[in-house]
Design a binder for these strands. Structure first.
Lengths: 204, 204, 204, 204
DNA sequence: ATATAAACGAGACGGTACGTCGGGTCTTTTT
DNA sequence: AAAAAGACCCGACGTACCGTCTCGTTTATAT
């Protein structure tokens, strides 16, 4: 995935603001990383490129984010604030479909899809990246569908003591699978999969 | 992931055997790749290392396999011949559990787990690798659980016209998820997941 | 000196004609070598390219010409038959100027200039090439101006026992210098140099 | 020209000394290049070898010297400081003989002979190398015999308005010819050639 | 006021791997 | 017996990122 050199804007030079971390530099780096990730994907996402675009220096990036994975995590964290809460649609299955479709669209539109793909790729050869994914990303992601399951319990679709962990993992696996095979646009696959899982939950 | 240089055996030099592809060289290269993948993982899997260990030349590798992804696919193809057929265990759920457990063990024991992890990683920045995965690997893998579903149909657990595609993809997603998060040893996760899916299938 | 792939004509495939050297193959190889040398220069003159263009195989080239230098020598030998004999111009200096100008033009027009440049380049790291140049090329080249010196003796411009070796070497050096610095078009440099040498010869 | 691997000393690792070019690295690279050139000649002079011996990295070499020709030029420049000034010997011819003999010895003893041979070889297929030779090397070399000609003018051997360019080029050609034919040890050839040229100069 | 300490841009640097090119050798097959 | 074909190893090429290491500058804080 060779990428052409695209320089959208000349970053203005920042200087030290004394012995405190510069929020401006921090913002510029994350922003540059996000832009590169969006426009070039994982292939063009090198720290050299990020530093250059941000008008920052590589040591600064390594100091605060340790490396690629840390920076990617921060991007994911920041941007995932924008993930919408699932509305009450009357049934567990409908809400799960909505939730996953929303997640996929979020991944496609924001830099988070590319960030997560990159993280998964890194994690295959970098133990630290894998640890970050497991310790920082997954717990957070597990909380995303919690309200949906709570509502289903209130509705009586699920037992009150139902543990959503396994179901959540299965849904995550399903979404990751479409992410890494670059098939997030196949939204029609969502319904059958959710139907299968939802039926399983009811039956359980 | 710095790795120490491990040279197990000095490969003898091969010469050309005329205007035909040397099966010995081919074997040596695949074997070397498999060994490196097993002992070093994706991090140490460089074509330089493979060529050196195989006593082969990089141009030969690029000529016949085009690059890393092609070589990885071949390893996976070759080795996956050893995947066992699932025995008749009396129920769909039991057989699916057995099948997935067997797949995970196969991934852990052979080089195929590392190969698939590497392929998935490559596919995140290399379109050609992604295409290989989707066109060469996935179709083949979809056929793996076919006999299990056929038996379930014969048993009456599933309708005769049941299409196993969605269920297979979900099981694949589940396995890939554990692969890329390096949690193939959590076999206890298999049963709940399969139970959910199997219940969904019955309910459908 | 990156060169674009130029294939002027598709060489027809020749087959073995039995236990005799094929004159057609020989011709095709030399011709292909000459063409590449002319159009691409030393930079594009690889045996792979020659073999491909000639529709021949590298082993055939190595068998009959041993390698690049041998092939280059043959090209030079063949083509240098076309070098004109210097006419009687009435004076040694005039004839030497004519001779050198003719040589330079010959180098520029035919493949021999490029061939000699290539040979000189090869000879800087390849002892065999150097030996070929000294043993096969130089003696032959020394004979080129002989008739001019003979005429000068007859005319009385030189003593009867004059040995032209040193003068010839100096003229050769002068021409090689312009060859390797790619300044064979500076014909105006010829006269002053020859004047200097001719005056020296008279004075001697 | 297969060469045996000779490692005389294990180079100590250098680190960056900040955003300034490290003179130590520079020195180490030039030194390594010089050593390889001296011991192996042009045949063994690869940038891989230079980098390895210098304990430097190839990118550093390419960054500062662009490639082989640039490095060769620097070696020549640095080392040619050691060229001796020709003493007053009373006659132009004697001084020219002394000068050329000194040059040849200098070429034989230092790495400059090999460097110049390499440069000439490179220049036959690399336009940039040729340009370097013509623009950086030749002008400098033309100045070498200037003082000799000046003394000859003072002595009255030459007219005050004599332009030494042609004579210098002829002498350069003569020396290059012996360099590329690896006959720098034939010092007895110097006198006749110089005699011819000197006589020509007087006669002019 | 002044010294200290931290943050930062800059970019050099060693290192590893990349993917490619050309050289020279080997063996099978064809004539 | 000779040639065509092409596979093969080797070594070098020039480039891309990686992660680290100063340097010099700037500024808030501690003296």
């Amino acid at each position: 995935m060779k990428t052409t050199e695209i320089v959208l804007k000349k970053p203005k030079q920042r200087k030290s603001i004394g012995p405190t971390r510069s929020p401006e530099t921090r913002r510029a780096i994350v922003e540059a990383a996000r832009e590169i990730l969006t426009s070039e994907g994982y292939g063009g996402f090198t720290l050299d490129a990020v530093a250059k675009r941000a008008g920052a220096s590589k040591p600064t990036i390594y100091k605060w984010w340790q490396g690629k994975p840390g920076l990617l995590i921060e991007i994911y964290d920041q941007e995932s604030e924008a993930l919408l809460t699932t509305p009450d649609l009357g049934s567990l299955a409908d809400e799960l479909v909505w939730l996953i479709r929303n997640l996929w669209r979020f991944w496609r539109i924001t830099a988070c899809g590319a960030a997560l793909r990159s993280l998964i790729a890194e994690a295959q050869h970098d133990g630290a990246a894998l640890a970050l994914v497991k310790d920082r990303l997954l717990p957070q992601r597990r909380s995303y569908p919690l309200s949906v399951f709570e509502r289903a319990k209130a509705r009586g679709e699920l037992d009150a003591d139902f543990d959503p962990t396994d179901a959540t993992d299965l849904l995550t696996a399903f979404s990751w699978y479409h992410l890494v095979t670059d098939t997030l646009d196949r939204e029609k696959d969502i319904e059958p999969a959710v139907a299968m899982i939802a039926a399983g939950l009811r039956g359980a």
